[in-house]
Design a protein around this nucleic acid. Structure first.
Length: 679
DNA sequence: TAGAAGCAGATTTTT
DNA sequence: TCTGCTTCTA
């Protein structure tokens, strides 16, 4: 037992050994979070808890894999059953495979990605902006508002239209037996919500629940957790409210700020010792984040000494910026730094171009993390679409993508007519061509019809192939996808991608001998980008993509008002600041903050001001002054945006502001005075 | 039907 | 500036 816990500090140990009831582990950046939860998992198992009764949920496959590896290396005994450790979405998938019938749907559904979702909605041809429609639909879905309800409650004509599209979209998914990412969480919740017995059963199956990155959970995830924990309340969540950076995607920071309100008698353990960064870096991070009001009171403590000071780099424009940074990187590498320990971060992807130019000019090799994902590439999606159609002939959506790719003489006009006819005959497109070609005879060009017939014959023959392994070769033989791409621009890269995919497919077929095409398709749908194995180069990525990573030498670029913080309607300045905090706390040894006086963006050059975050982090003058609000005294009634109305029970000082201890109906919180209103 | 030219629109994105 | 989509023409 001691072996599992021996390298933990006191609070980590407390967190790892508190097993029953609800536990909130507030794990600051670099505070040994993963170590703590993996130790906790190992501790539970060593203590005789049946592993399969433990459910650990993460957000990424990568985190799940890392945790699994680390937890199991701590456990010496061979296990008979394993704990379930997976992403929220994978859990939803597993659940739906078992219980989809409760919604009168077949469990052979296929998962579509965001891109597919947009394409489907786009095909409904609304003149409203696509981004608005998709985000509103997502909101409806996540708030569990049914299409009919949305339609009847929509007041503005535009919203009525969106609600109607929402209805069509949901019908489309059902008809084609598709589920989107949201559904993987929403449908399980709906099933549990309507079936108390099942909820009990499932809750009893997972008697111990752990959730990683809890600050990023959304409302549905929270509700799902409530259901899962409903019979025992053994739920341990780990997170850091200061690192909540996915609010724009529906993550609700209240989930963590108010965890103790929903789960009774919560024990809170704070991990505040930082083992990652120099104290100079931590100081900047702490000072910056202290400007936020909606946060739990805590402060990271350094365990490493000062280190080098933080360097602020100013340039005239992005060209100079990328030049200066490239030179700095050269110096670092010449001084012995490993390029793998160096990273450049930015707030928006558009800034990557100038920095890439600079690195290329300086002949510094780099790797882009994020960017275009492997499975999102056109050539890969084409192959996936073929596989989907082979798997599910009713999938009109995937069929549309490949019906004329490689080109087989079926133009847009033909496709439109074909889909119309299918709609009129209440049939899927595939079935229509296969079983009722007579209905098409007079409507479609002869050549197209012939071509469609051949297409169907080929798909039919592939559908009857036994065994996964040979399928991919047969597919290439029949349709020549690789060959087609080898004649298009950028063929080298595309063919390489196709080869990689074929390789992945064959590996899967070998490793999962009794598996089938359906499970292959679902597995890859939930796969995020493979981390490139590339240890030699420096990294370039968005701040979002950097979460959970650390680098000895870190450059944050584009620190200008409007770029970072990104300003516009809907900006959440506190979330921007948390992004700044996440970015800074990625750095271990040396941190460079860069801003330019002007930048070329969206077709024009604009003059820019230095980001307020530089000053707020205590680096150079010009900090925006906090408004020192009216004085507070004990007993004042105040109102807080999140916590509501409360009474001041103590007044303390933090720097230039007052720290108020406020009682919000029994819930006692420390709040900075500027962020509450006197009433 | 397929390629060429013209035109709007452009945050972050674990699944 | 660059990309991805629509419109135009052979």
């Amino acid at each position: 037992m001691e072996r599992v816990l021996k390298s933990l500090n006191d609070s980590q140990r407390e967190a790892a050994t508190t097993i029953d009831g609800s536990l909130l582990i507030l794990a600051g950046a670099g505070s040994g979070k993963t170590k703590t939860i993996t130790s906790r998992l190992a501790f539970m198992i060593e203590n005789g808890i049946v592993p399969s009764s433990i459910l650990t949920l993460t957000f990424t496959n990568k985190a799940a894999a890392e945790m699994r590896q680390r937890a199991f290396s701590l456990i010496q005994n061979r296990l008979e059953h394993y704990p379930l450790l997976c992403t929220f979405h994978k859990f939803g998938l597993l659940f739906l495979k078992h219980y989809m019938h409760k919604l009168n749907r077949d469990n052979s559904f296929v998962i579509i990605d965001t891109d597919d979702k947009k394409k489907i909605i786009k095909s409904f041809e609304s003149d409203l902006p696509l981004a608005l429609i998709t985000s509103e639909i997502s909101k409806y879905k996540n708030n569990l508002i049914e299409p009919d309800e949305a339609i009847s409650s929509a007041l503005l004509p535009n919203y009525k239209q969106i609600a109607l599209i929402y209805k069509r979209y949901e019908e489309y998914l059902k008809d084609n037996n598709l589920v989107d990412f949201d559904d993987l969480l929403i449908l399980p919740y709906k099933i549990l919500e309507s079936d108390e017995e099942l909820t009990k059963e499932v809750s009893q199956r997972y008697r111990f629940i752990m959730v990683d990155e809890y600050q990023d959970t959304n409302d549905i995830q929270f509700k799902l957790l409530q259901k899962l924990a409903s019979t025992h309340g053994n739920i341990c969540v780990v997170g850091d409210d200061d690192q909540s950076i996915y609010g724009w995607r529906g993550a609700n920071i209240k989930n963590i700020l108010e965890f103790d309100k929903y789960f009774k008698d919560t024990k809170i353990v704070k991990l505040t010792k930082n083992y990652r960064s120099t104290s100079n870096i931590l100081k900047a991070a702490n000072e910056l984040i202290a400007f936020n009001r909606n946060r739990m009171d805590k402060k990271l403590e350094a365990t490493i000494d000062d280190g080098k000071g933080i360097e602020v780099i100013n340039s005239n424009d992005e060209k100079e910026e990328s030049y200066k940074i490239s030179q700095k990187i050269k110096e670092l590498v010449e001084g012995g730094a490993n390029p793998n320990d160096i990273a450049i971060l930015y707030r928006i992807n558009a800034l990557s171009r100038s920095i890439e130019d600079g690195l290329n000019k300086a002949h510094i090799p780099y790797k882009m993390v994020g960017g275009m994902k492997f499975y999102e590439r056109a050539e890969i999606k084409d192959i996936i679409s073929y596989l989907r159609v082979i798997q599910n002939h009713q999938d009109d959506f995937s069929l549309k993508r490949i019906i004329n790719r490689p080109k087989r003489g079926i133009g847009k006009a033909t496709v439109d007519k074909l889909y119309d006819l299918a709609y009129q005959n209440n049939s899927s497109v595939y079935t229509l061509i296969k079983n009722h070609p007579e209905l098409l005879k007079e409507k479609l060009p002869k050549k197209a019809l012939e071509s469609l017939g051949e297409f169907i014959v080929k798909i039919e023959s592939l559908s009857s192939t036994n065994g996964l392994y040979t399928l991919i070769d047969d597919l290439e033989d029949e349709f020549g996808i690789k060959e087609y791409y080898s004649k298009l621009p950028d063929s080298l890269e595309k063919v390489a991608n196709i080869d990689e995919f074929y390789g992945l497919f064959r590996d899967y077929a070998v490793e999962n001998e009794d598996s089938n095409l359906e499970s292959f398709l679902n597995d890859i749908a939930l796969q995020s980008e493979q981390d490139q194995i590339d240890d030699k180069n420096i990294s370039v990525m968005s701040i979002h993509a950097s979460k959970g990573l650390e680098f000895k030498y870190l450059f944050i670029i584009g620190l200008e008002e409007g770029f970072f913080p990104l300003l516009g309607d809907g900006t959440d300045l506190e979330e921007e600041r948390r992004l700044g905090y996440v970015a800074i706390t990625r750095a271990k040894k040396e941190l460079y903050l860069s801003y330019a006086d002007s930048r070329f963006y969206k077709g024009k050059r604009s003059h820019l001001l230095k980001s307020r975050f530089i000053a707020e982090a205590g680096l150079g003058g010009g900090a925006l002054k906090l408004k020192t609000s009216s004085n507070y005294k004990k007993g004042d009634l105040v109102k807080h945006k999140i916590f509501g109305i409360g009474r001041v029970i103590n007044v303390g000082k933090v720097k230039k502001d007052y720290k108020l201890t406020i009682n919000f109906g029994g819930n006692i919180k420390d709040i900075i005075s500027t962020f509450v209103e006197k009433i």
